[in-house]
Structure formats: C-alpha cells, structure tokens
C-alpha cells in the first residue's frame, strides 16, 4: 500500500453490521448497517449529520465509529490504522480524540456528586493536569467555551441545573480532552425548543472556532439542515442519499428522502401535508422482519450516482420519483396489508 502523507482521521470502507443470524438462525438476522463508506478528513473540519428514523442504523453506526461495536464486514481506520489493531498508546489517543456526547445528559450524571466531578474525572483518568490549579483553570476554560459561567455551574448538583446547562457541561467535558471529532448522538432531543438553539449554537462554535469535526446523529432534519455541512440519510441500514446538506434537503432524489422531508411538519398553516401515499414499512408487527417498500436489497454492495457535485443517491430500488411524495393524488393513507405477513410474503423472508 502506498504511504500517504496524512491518512484521514476516520475512514469507513464498506462497513456492514449484522445482528443475530448465524448458524441455524437465519430468521433473526438484522442488517443494522449495510455497506457504508465514508471519510472524515482532519484538515477540513465539517459538521456531518447522520440522519435517520428509528431502526435506520444510525445508533449502530455511532457505536461502530466509537469502536464499541465491531463491524461484521468491512474495515474501519483511525489515522490510517485498523480499528482492531490499535496498540495501547494509539487506543488512548483515539479515546481522547474521538469524544461522544449522549442524548440524555441527566443519565450521564451521578446525582450524588457535584457537577465538578464529571469535569474532574477525565482530567484525572487521562492525567491531563499537572496540578490542582492547572486542573481548575482547564475546567473554567472549557466551561467558558460553551458559554457557561463557571461560578453559576461549579459546586452545584445536577438537579440544580437546567437541562440546557447539563447538556452544555457534557460538551465542556468532551472539550477538556481536546478532541478532533465529537460524536453528538441526539444531543437536543430531550430539551425544549428554546434551549435547543443554545446547545446547537455551542456545538457549531466548536466546529468554527476550534476546528473540531462534529458528527451529528439525529432524526431531526431541520436542525441538521441548520447546522451541518454534509448529510447522510439512512433508511433501514442503508445510506440512501448523501452529500451537501442544502442540495440533499432542497433537491431530494431518493423516494425515501422525499417522503421524509415532506413529512416534516412545517410551521406554516398554509403549507399543510398532502395525503401520504405509501406506508414506509416502519410500522410493522413485531421486530426483526425486514421489509422494504422502496425495493432496496437487504444486503449486497451499494452503488451511488452523483446527481450533481457532492450529491449522491443510492442506485437501484424503486424508480426515482420526480414528483414529491406529498403531491400524489390522494390514495390509501396507509396500506394495512403491507403489515400483514400473509398478504405480504416479504415479511416472512
């Protein structure tokens, strides 16, 4: 292999994760992520959104990126090194450079410790500070970076802070480790709309001011559009469309992306939803059965078409819709038949 000057920070090559299945148990196979590839370059710090609904595979993707789930097929590289072959020192550096922020900040706290504890713990674990004074200076700096007043937050217990403050402390904690990548998994789904803006704004600042790459994992396309540069739309384990966020959102090519964007409740009473034409297969009986009304193969290699610069769409499956999903002639709002294993044999596959 040719030696490159600087390998990308993170690279995924044809990564697939299959749960269950195995010998004599092919019925319960779930393809959580199928043949996903992408690259995070260090010299172009961007905000990349992985968007999808429940069951789309975005959580599995996050866990694989963090190294806590190993892919079934495919390779993952951190600074050119295979995830599975990191030595002790590289592993420690990986843990410093790739930092997660989770959904519910309250669950990340021990209610009996003051919030100072969550900030001191990583400094201690990674031996980042030389002295107490050094440690305190780092804590104050990182709190200020996310727009918090140290004297209003330190010395308090988690329940004495607002949800927005708690979530921003988690961002501050991640910052202590001077990460290159922050994985933010639904960081604002538990907070009120008015606080959402503040948290997302502080995440955006990290990218702009500190050059940190942010991978924003969400189901909310509106905030994704507002803060990110690039987006990957996931549907049942597949990346169905990806590229520049404005291009994907304003000119969606895949039928699933079109339906998804069309279903976002726009805050405009004069622009209401049309009747929905097809069920998406998201409402099914039980779990584990894979059906796909978009005609995407459950497994196999993916090929993408570049419809315009930096805008790719999954080839295959059903014909691309040139009409937007919501503007079809009114039809059956929901096809209950699609949920019936008897009339829909694909459910039994």
């Amino acid at each position: 292999m040719e030696q490159q000057d600087s390998p990308p920070l993170l690279e995924l090559k044809h990564v697939t994760k299959i749960y269950g299945g195995g010998f004599l148990n092919s019925e319960n196979r779930t393809v959580a992520v199928n043949d996903a590839s992408f690259i995070i370059q260090e010299d172009q710090p961007r905000i990349v959104t992985i968007a999808g609904e429940s069951g789309s595979g975005k959580t599995t993707m996050t866990r694989m990126l963090l190294g806590s789930v190993t892919p079934t097929h495919g390779e993952m590289y951190y600074r050119g090194k295979d995830y599975r072959k990191l030595n002790r020192r590289e592993r420690r550096q990986f843990q410093l450079e790739v930092q997660p922020i989770f959904q519910d900040p309250f669950e990340s706290y021990n209610p009996f410790y003051k919030v100072d504890h969550v900030l001191h713990a990583p400094i201690k674990n990674f031996k980042l500070a030389e002295s107490k004074a050094d440690r305190d200076r780092m804590v104050v700096e990182s709190l200020q970076m996310v727009g918090l007043q140290p004297d209003e937050t330190l010395g308090r217990f988690p329940h004495q802070l607002s949800g927005g403050q708690r979530q921003r402390i988690m961002v501050a904690r991640a910052l202590l480790l001077k990460p290159r990548v922050i994985l933010a998994d639904e960081p604002v789904s538990m907070v009120d709309a008015s606080l959402r803006a503040t948290i997302l704004d502080s995440i955006q600042n990290l990218n702009r001011d500190l050059g940190i790459t942010v991978i924003y994992i969400t189901h909310d396309l509106t905030t994704a559009f507002q803060i990110s540069d690039d987006i990957l739309i996931m549907y049942r384990g597949n990346v169905v469309e990806y590229g520049d966020v404005a291009k994907v959102i304003h000119n969606p090519q895949h039928a699933y992306t079109q339906l998804l964007i069309d279903s976002i409740p726009q805050p405009d009473p004069d622009n209401r939803w049309g009747e929905i034409v097809r069920a998406t297969g998201t409402e099914m009986v039980g779990t584990g059965r894979q059906t796909d009304i978009f005609g995407i193969d459950a497994e196999g290699e993916r090929s993408y078409e570049e419809v315009e610069p930096n805008h790719f769409v999954l080839r295959g499956g059903i014909e691309m819709d040139d009409r937007r999903a919501g503007e079809h002639t009114p039809a059956e709002p929901l096809q209950p038949d699609s949920m019936n294993p008897v009339s829909n044999p694909s459910l039994l596959r």
Partner: peptide
Amino acid sequence: LIESIPTLDEKKRLVGIPGM
C-alpha cells in the same frame, strides 16, 4: 416562539428565547 423555529428554507443563526 414562532421566530425561533428553525426551517428548511434558509440557514440562519439559531436563536432561542433568552431567560427561563
């Protein structure tokens, strides 16, 4: 409340309602 709703039309700086 209505002004602070992010939309898909244009990117603008996200603003919340100050205070609690």
